[in-house]
Design a protein around this nucleic acid. Structure first.
Length: 893
RNA sequence: GGGAUCAUAGCUCAGCUGGUUCAGAGCAUCUGCCUUACAAGCAGAGGGUCACAGGUUCGAAUCCUGUUGAUCCCACCA
């Protein structure tokens, strides 16, 4: 137990945070293993990228998870929170490439093996940072279960997923137009492309007719691609062009002769109504190309330069100087050259959406290449149903529509990436490019032999899998990596016990990237949904509403904040304003609020601690003390219900705010102030202090999930605790019946005190000055009123003397007549008249309602009864006010 | 272009199936207090015709329609 002089006035978080973290770890409180006698409560952490350092998004996310976990732990669940990291192929590879570039090493100068060696070294060095940072937050993860998506067992589950889907026919390799990142030199899935509105130049280019009969004009925003054109397409019914269909035109610059074809796809109202067809560089054009059996000319190299193929047609040699030019430089040049040739009709500026790579921000190029795809339609059916029928709940549910819409229109998923860092695609080719899908070369040879195929020149696919193709297995593979893709019907003990997990906390941005696909994978291989509730947090923005980003420099370092305010303060600071699914406009002020709250609790403890020293069995038990205990305790159980309810509904900020007010207002301002003896030297009876400590302990329990450090610290300072008596594993307070009338009375009593104080404040009577009061009869909680209102014992009198306190069922007089004489009677009259007006208006509306037959007939009986009560109360108040006004008016004369 | 969501005090948000002691909370603001747990505090107060216009109803912030404004998702518009 603490010694008085050890207690500073302000709470000092840094002295205790690491102490308790270590203590919890030493006691294995975070560690979980299957236990048939306890119910599991499981969360898998969205694994942060290994490249990452903790940012505000992680902070929010993991604080929420920790709050949920800590509360469930106290509720007696066997809680398991699985941490880990994601290899994040493209993001990590980009960082490693940059790191190497800084050292003067080019990726292209390295072999795959050399590069991966660097990458692993990098991962070993930086990969653990973020988890270490999470520990500082107080994240109570089962660290022994930490998983990395490229751990060997995990990787095997990824390969098995691929092989399994391939065998079942859900994975195929296709020559397709995909989104290509010319900087990252890799394919991107549709979800990795971000469309930004931009002003583009729409260039109208004349294509001369081969028979010199004139020209046809097309419009394009990417004029450099005309060199890969293989046709011009118009709408078959377009009167302007109907006669040209089947004729030939000359593609400028490369002088390629191409046909004019017709297709219903064309929108005659856009541009000129004539479309240049470039199958290799546009999705729609590719489809047109296939439909009309057009040749394909690949006009760009993977890194976005003009390719040699464009000059492979007759008379194209003049275009040779374009070869090797960057696509954007070429664009400018070709416009200039076309203008010189007199082939540009006009140039318009239009707004359109241009795709950018999420990772490199490079403008994405539609690009034709061999990629691997997952057929999504069929396998996502179960996942769609799960959310539709509520097996998996999205919180808030406004995301359900978006989810359904996406799942109903799901497209095939491009899963190959032209990178080195990641899970290399388990596919092998022989000299004839036959494919064997399996893990090892030996298996591939076996396969080729068995099928009488060549075993010459066997090589593995060069590409790796999309990161999400590994993270969609996360809730399964962290428990049993052998489940995925295997035919075994028995899962291991961990899997049987922990799966499906309970809650998932993540950002709505990755609802489709990750959440939807985890649900799909869950039904594919886990025989069940991966989790029941998905709590979607908002995006952390700055107070101007801008997304936090490094480039803007508007993202505070969470560790700096912890350093400045303490982990507890930052935790509640983040949660004060973050309802599920709403973006959080972060402001450091919230941390200040959190710190002040911590300090308030600290000082409540200091007071209780002082009172502990003054405890005695001989002290008087004052009525105001027993009354305060009754009132607070009853209210506590009401609020406990409300807090539990808010938790069940995932309304975390409500639960926090309820706890905050319960502690600050009701415990500190109303309860502690009431039980505190009037005289600072007065002893306090042991019963009272014991009861107070008991109540404070309940408060600390409620506080613990939000502010684990300070609550644990005070828990131990309050009493000497034995081993395993730590707060973190205490039982969450049991709910208890409470008296609703008493709660209402408590509210009324508080209101009386506020009115007394308001009068004091207005008439400038010091709070220290004890006042007399009187009433016709005595009431049960008068001692409590006297204590908090700083009043003498009540005089029982019917006289209408002094200032009247407005209360619906009581007439309480405050004896301040002699003091009132100096103050402004006019203002007083004005104020009361205002109140009177309001009340009379109110009464009128209530009466109007009551005299309305339709209301009395249609409204629920209890509602009508309520209105009658309102009428009664209002009448009584009006009477009181009138009485006071009368008195003041005579005074004024 | 299609779809979804939202618009309530200076700020961030609550207000469930319509009923005026429900127009509320926290923060911020103002006033008075160094009251011996806490000035990182105490006590009190002032802020909103619930985006706009109609409609349904005895009654609407709460339901319907339209307008305006914001955000998000989806889409191959060259």
């Amino acid at each position: 137990m603490a010694n008085q002089k050890e207690l500073p006035k302000n709470f000092e978080p840094h002295k205790i945070e690491s102490k308790w973290n270590q203590h919890w770890l030493n006691n294995d409180y975070f560690y979980s293993q299957p236990d048939a006698n306890k119910k599991p409560y499981t969360i898998v952490m969205p694994p942060p990228n290994v490249t990452g350092v903790l940012h505000m998004g992680h902070m929010l996310n993991n604080t929420i998870q920790d709050v949920l976990i800590r509360r469930k732990r106290m509720q007696g669940y066997n809680t398991c929170w699985v941490p880990g990291t994601d290899h994040a192929s493209i993001a990590t590879e980009a960082k490693v490439v940059k790191m190497l570039a800084d050292k003067g090493i080019k990726k292209s100068d390295l072999t795959r093996e050399e590069f991966l060696k660097y990458a692993w070294e990098w991962k070993e060095k930086y990969g653990g940072i973020i988890l270490e940072q999470l520990k500082k937050l107080g994240a109570s993860c089962d660290w022994k279960r930490t998983t990395f998506t490229m751990d060997e067992p995990y990787s095997n589950s990824v390969f098995n997923a691929f092989i399994d889907l391939y065998r079942k026919g859900y994975i195929y390799r296709g020559y397709r137009i995909i989104n290509w990142d010319p900087v990252g030199l890799t394919a991107l899935s549709d979800e990795e492309v971000i469309y930004k509105e931009s002003n583009s130049q729409l260039v109208y280019v004349k294509y001369l007719m081969e028979d010199h009969s004139g020209h046809i004009t097309i419009a394009t925003t990417r004029p450099e691609t005309i060199m890969a054109d293989v046709a011009v397409c118009v709408h078959p019914e377009d009167e302007r062009y109907k006669h040209l269909i089947g004729k030939k035109v000359i593609v400028p610059i490369v002088n390629r002769v191409v046909p004019i074809i017709a297709d219903n796809y064309i929108d005659p109202t856009f541009g000129t109504g004539a479309l240049k067809v470039t199958p290799a560089h546009d999705q729609a054009d590719y489809e047109l190309g296939i439909k009309h059996q057009l040749p394909i000319i690949i006009g760009l190299t993977p890194d976005g330069k003009i390719s040699k193929e464009i000059i492979n047609s007759p008379n194209a040699q003049k275009a040779e100087h374009y070869v090797g030019l960057d696509r954007f430089i070429c664009r400018k040049k070709i416009i200039k050259d076309l203008e010189e040739l007199g082939l540009v009709e006009k140039i318009e500026t239009i707004k359109n959406k241009v795709g950018h790579s999420e990772r490199t921000d490079a403008i994405v190029e539609p690009y034709l290449s061999y990629q691997w795809f997952v057929k999504m339609k069929e396998i996502s059916k179960a996942a769609l149903d799960a959310v539709s029928n509520g097996d998996v709940k999205l919180i808030p549910d406004k995301f359900i529509n978006t989810y359904k819409h996406w799942m109903e229109n799901v497209k095939d998923w491009c899963i190959s990436r032209q990178l080195w860092w990641g899970h290399r695609i388990p596919a092998w080719y022989n000299e004839n490019n036959d494919i064997a899908v399996c893990k090892t070369k030996e298996e591939a040879i076996e396969y080729f032999q068995k099928n009488n195929l060549s075993t010459q020149n066997i090589r593995q696919d060069e590409d790796v899998l999309d990161t999400w193709f590994s993270s969609w297995l996360w809730p399964i593979s962290v428990f049993d990596p052998t489940v995925v893709g295997s035919d075994k019907k028995t899962f291991n003990e961990d899997f049987k016990y922990y799966y499906p997990t309970n809650d998932l906390v993540t950002a709505p941005e990755i609802l489709f990237f990750w959440v939807a696909r985890m649900i799909i994978a869950g039904y594919l291989w886990g025989n069940n949904k991966p989790f029941t509730n998905v709590y979607l947090t908002g995006i952390v923005r700055d107070k101007l509403g801008r997304k936090m980003s490094k480039s803007l420099g508007n993202s505070p370092d969470p560790l700096d904040l912890i350093q400045k305010y303490g982990a507890d303060a930052v935790r509640v600071g983040m949660l004060f304003s973050s309802p599920a699914g709403n973006d959080l406009l972060f402001d450091e002020e919230y941390c200040v609020q959190g710190r002040n709250f911590a300090n308030k609790i600290w000082n409540a403890f200091r007071l209780i601690h002082q009172l502990q020293q003054r405890a005695s069995n001989d002290a008087i038990i004052h009525d105001y003390q027993t009354q305060a205990i009754q009132l607070f305790e009853n209210y506590f159980f009401k609020q406990l219900d409300a807090i539990n309810d808010a938790f069940e509904k995932f309304r975390l900020n409500d639960a926090l705010m309820l706890s905050y007010k319960l502690i600050w207002d009701d415990f500190c301002s109303w309860y502690l102030e009431a039980i505190k003896p009037n005289d600072s030297n007065e002893k306090i009876h042991s019963h009272i202090i014991q009861k107070t400590i008991e109540l404070f302990e309940s408060i600390l329990k409620i506080l613990h999930p939000w502010m684990p450090f300070i609550s644990e610290e005070i828990w131990h300072l309050l009493k000497n605790r034995k081993d395993k008596e730590d707060l973190i594993i205490q039982q969450w307070p049991e709910t208890k019946e409470y008296n609703i009338q008493l709660v209402q009375l408590y509210d009324n009593l508080k209101n009386i005190i506020v009115q007394i104080r308001e009068v004091r404040s207005r008439i400038q009577i010091s709070p220290k000055e004890k006042l007399h009061w009187s009433e016709a009869t005595s009431f049960e909680y008068d001692a409590w009123i006297e204590k908090l209102g700083n009043l003498h014992s009540k005089t029982i009198a019917t006289k209408s003397n002094g200032k009247l306190i407005v209360h619906p069922s009581r007439k309480i007089y405050l004896d301040i007549d002699e003091k009132i004489s100096g103050i402004n009677v006019e203002t007083e009259i004005q104020k009361l008249s205002g109140e009177l007006d309001y009340l009379q208006g109110f009464l009128e509306s209530v009466r109007k309602k009551l005299s309305n037959e339709k209301f009395v007939q249609n409204a629920k009986p209890e509602l009508v009864e309520k209105e009658r009560q309102k009428e009664k109360d209002a009448l009584q108040k009006i009477e009181s006010i009138k009485e006071q006004l009368q008195k003041l008016k005579t005074q004024a004369m």
